[in-house]
Design a protein around this nucleic acid. Structure first.
Lengths: 159, 159
DNA sequence: TTGAATCGTAACAGTGAAAGTTACGAACAA
DNA sequence: TTGTTCGTAACTTTCACTGTTACGATTCAA
């Protein structure tokens, strides 16, 4: 699972988890994401530390949501993933004594801060329940069989 | 020169270039940035393609600014560097047919677009001439010898 | 015309961060 | 007790990017 797609993939997983009874094992999630159970555990650990999910060991164990999707935004998930930096660009530190470098750094850091604020504001406006509801609507409109309880999981399949 | 610091470093270089007579060779710039002349050429090539600098071969050749710093913003430099993506996060493409994934992607791409717009707006407001002027002011206030023509380049040194 | 300086660029090596993998211990339920 | 599942350390693999080498093309000056 590439680092830059963790937010999208975890959001996807959480929505489907809300539609399925019982816990989702790391193994099942890993197959859904074409990756390894250990990678799933590493990633989900951040969500657990933030109180978004809980984990249980042993048979019938796995991962469970702790709250309804109405109380979860993309920003919550994003923060739980503890991305080191959202940006690929940043300041430099070659000539700490040079006022030119210092001012250039300052301008760049300021611009990134503004962008970061805009990003968080936008992510905070998206609840996972919105994604589920719109997904169900899309599915209902598209599917001749009528609406399912959960998109793509009518027969318990994860996709 | 790490990818994420190219904007800061190139802005720094351009400001100093504006203060020095003659062309700056890739070799001199490379020493300033503690990197390799080939890396400098690769990076400056983007600025040349955007018409920000010109290059000349042969003795006394090197890199020259094509316009005054008043007509150059951080956004101009940023665009010239052709950064693949400013963000470390992005959408996924695992389940193209799943409406949940599609909507999550859409929300994330939308949030990133808003952040990108904010970033570009902030970078566009910073002219390189502002950085030079403020740098000179800082230097003058700090330096007992009084103001220099160019910060850190009183004796032609690049720093 | 020759030679030094300089950019242009291809090709390859080196680096580093993150994902993927293996292995094994701990907890839990039947 | 046995099988399931998470927790985590340790290692390998991968990938993108920088760094490096090499060589050709161009330009200037003697």
């Amino acid at each position: 699972m590439s680092r830059d797609s963790r937010l999208a993939r975890m959001a996807h997983v959480l929505v489907h988890m809300a539609c399925n009874h019982g816990a989702a094992t790391s193994d099942v999630i890993a197959r859904m994401l074409s990756t390894n159970p250990v990678v799933v555990r590493r990633t989900m650990a951040g969500l657990r530390d933030r109180g978004i999910v809980t984990s249980e060991k042993g048979p019938r164990g796995g991962w469970r949501l702790t709250r309804p999707l109405e109380e979860l935004t993309l920003l919550d998930v994003h923060r739980a993933l503890e991305t080191v930096s959202v940006f690929t660009i940043g300041p430099t530190a070659d000539h700490p004594e040079c006022p030119v470098e210092h001012l250039a750094n300052q301008a760049i850091v300021g611009a990134l801060a503004q962008a970061g604020t805009a990003l968080e504001a936008a992510l905070a406006q998206v609840r996972l329940s919105d994604i589920l509801a719109e997904g169900q609507a899309l599915r209902a409109a598209r599917d001749a069989d009528g609406p399912h309880v959960c998109p793509n999981t009518a027969r318990g399949a994860w996709s």
